[in-house]
């Protein structure tokens, strides 16, 4: 017993306090580390391996080299349609979302009566689950009989064909995506309230009008928020799934115009049991998302302004 105590004492002395803290920290974090390794790292690496195989999820994977990647780029027209739709959605919806969220935040920042009520109203759509929202939109956006067709009918017109024709399907989904920007409005609002009043005062002294102050004070101070919104929106747009999947049943109709990347990936994995092919798609999406995010990140030094002076 005495020997054990002495040995422990010696070991404890040999370990520095910092090392002991590190070990303790790791022990406390071990459940999370285990979760990360088992449920994130392992599946991610396994998926990388499966992307080079033919694999259905149950049978042993068969190594096929880069065949999945070659097929994606050389003989899969639907894959290219899915890429086009997804990029279109991201390129059109993200700038619009930034403009709308910023604009609405500016309006909601105005010191008017019942300001809190307006803010709540604009945030409410964010609280509705996407699935419920999509089902309601089906009713609203049904050509001719949907709620949105009513004003057109009043003028004797059938109105647009919304999700039922290729020309309108993509813009309709962009329009719907703009419905759920409540969280972003809150971020911009917080940013707006962070703009130092003395900057506006200084601008006033210099004789700046509203637009000059907006462009030279408000926007630069809010660029970190825009940056955050941009990065998260890119990731979200490239993974756009639930709304088009529910509203079109994942068919991609009309003319593949609603076939988004994640939907096509899902169909390959779970409709056709092509898990290897779907893994290859997942890795391409991951690499593309990483590339775009890094590009935005690197570009931040040119256009993101931190009031504290860093960067």
């Amino acid at each position: 017993m005495a020997t054990t105590v002495v040995t422990e004492g010696l070991q404890r002395r040999r370990l520095s306090q910092g090392t002991r803290h590190t070990i303790n920290g790791l022990l406390f974090a071990s459940p999370w580390i285990f979760g990360l390794l088992a449920f994130w790292i392992y599946p991610t690496l396994a998926s990388a391996y499966y992307s080079f195989t033919k694999y259905n999820g149950v049978r042993d994977p068969v190594w096929t080299g880069i065949a999945n990647y070659v097929e994606l780029f050389t003989s899969d027209g639907e894959f290219l349609d899915a890429v086009y739709n997804t990029v279109y959605f991201a390129v059109v919806s993200i700038p619009l979302a930034i403009i709308f969220a910023f604009g609405l935040a500016l309006m909601l920042n105005a010191k008017i009566r019942a300001q809190v009520v307006y803010r709540t109203i604009y945030f409410l759509p964010t609280l509705v689950p996407e699935v419920a929202l999509a089902l309601v939109w089906v009713f609203i956006f049904t050509p001719h009989s949907g709620l949105i067709a009513a004003p057109f009918r009043a003028f004797g017109s059938r109105g647009p064909c919304w999700l039922t024709c290729a020309e309108w399907a993509r813009p309709t989904l962009v329009l719907l995506a703009l419905w759920i920007i409540g969280q972003q409005i809150i971020l911009y609002l917080a940013g707006l309230q962070d703009v130092p009043q003395d900057l506006y005062d200084a601008a006033d002294v210099d004789g700046a009008n509203f637009f000059t102050k907006f462009l030279n004070v408000t926007v630069p101070i809010l660029t970190p928020v825009i940056f955050f919104h941009l990065v998260t929106s890119v990731i979200g747009a490239l993974n756009f799934f639930a709304i088009p999947y529910i509203m079109t049943g994942g068919t991609g109709f009309p003319a593949n115009s609603t076939l988004f990347y994640s939907i096509y990936l899902y169909k390959n994995a779970f409709h056709y049991l092509e898990m290897g092919y779907a893994s290859a798609m997942a890795w391409l999406l991951f690499m593309f998302t990483l590339f775009v995010t890094l590009f935005i990140w690197r570009s931040a030094r040119w256009w993101v302004f931190y009031a504290g002076g860093e960067e």
């Binding site: 089906v138 049904t142 050509p143 001719h144 039922t164 024709c165 529910i246 509203m247 079109t248 049943g249």
Partner: peptide, 14 residues
């Protein structure tokens, strides 16, 4: 257009 409208209204198991 009318055929599509009916199918669109029935999307999502409606």
């Amino acid at each position: 257009e009318d055929i599509d409208a009916m199918l669109a209204a029935c999307a999502g198991g409606n």
